[in-house]
Design a protein around this nucleic acid. Structure first.
Lengths: 141, 141
DNA sequence: AAGATAACTTGTTTTTTACAAGTGATATCA
DNA sequence: TGATATCACTTGTAAAAAACAAGTTATCTT
């Protein structure tokens, strides 16, 4: 596992982004944090996509080494850690919202999804503010 | 190789997007099309990230099966094919632009990159229009 | 003190990717 | 017109990464 630098050290802004946060599992962790307010190892493990524990550990380490998330002891339970988005991580919220907007156009809509899309269109700044304030946008799926 | 359906058939809009277009190589192909106006197999192969030919073939097939790109014979050279973005693919332009904006904040800036970022901020609609009109945004890197 | 819990690590199998070489249908050149 | 080049792939194999299963350590609860 190489968490250090970009895989191919491309000279491109797009490749930089993809190599930094664009791996499937990394991005699903970020989704969990931004949309559901998740912040613990066990929370991420419990997501519906079923990430393997070694992969999750590697991704958290990678995202932390890239400065996208940070890790701190939970003051109320010394077994636990709390992961949170840094400024660099919070800045990824617009990417997340555009992916959701795109998928909304092309994935079959449920009522829940429609509500989220409507809120993105009508209250984008409110959503971005909620993400920054660590307020969950959705309840657990 | 399974090009048919989503890997985990997640119920989530974000996972849907990632599974459909979010693979590293798929997205770099889309970047080539949107930013550089590339449309031929050999053009994609020649990108600086050095995709392997079998992987490129698989990704093109996948993107086509997802309806994001389409493939047609080149009327001027019967050995060649022309790949182009469908409406579904063009709708990914905002995702691309947000990734570029994010990376612009956190990757060391060159003059070329700064110009692209400035244009995204000042003329977003113009860029989106250029992408739809198949006009390259950048010249080859 | 015994068992449970949280956050991992380690070892192994399976899948995916990367690399290298080859193929078939045009096209171009001598 | 036959020989060579080009384009868009395919196939086979080695290397890397992901998935799966089991184990570890520190802390907490009863």
């Amino acid at each position: 596992m190489q968490t250090q630098t970009k895989k191919h050290d491309s000279n491109c802004l797009v490749a930089y982004g993809i190599d930094t946060f664009g791996d499937r599992w990394s991005f699903l962790v970020l989704r969990d944090m931004m949309l559901y307010g998740k912040c613990r190892y066990g929370d991420f493990l419990a997501s519906e996509e079923q990430i393997a524990t070694n992969i999750l550990a590697a991704r958290l380490k990678h995202l932390e080494s890239e400065g996208i998330i940070s890790k701190a002891r939970d003051p109320e339970n010394r077994r636990s850690y709390i992961y949170s988005l840094t400024e660099k991580g919070l800045d990824l919220a617009p990417v997340l919202l555009e992916i959701i907007r795109w998928s909304s156009r092309y994935m079959k809509m449920t009522a829940r999804r429609r509500r989220l899309l409507e809120r993105i269109e009508a209250d984008r700044d409110g959503i971005l503010a909620d993400i920054r304030a660590r307020r969950a946008i959705l309840t657990a799926p």
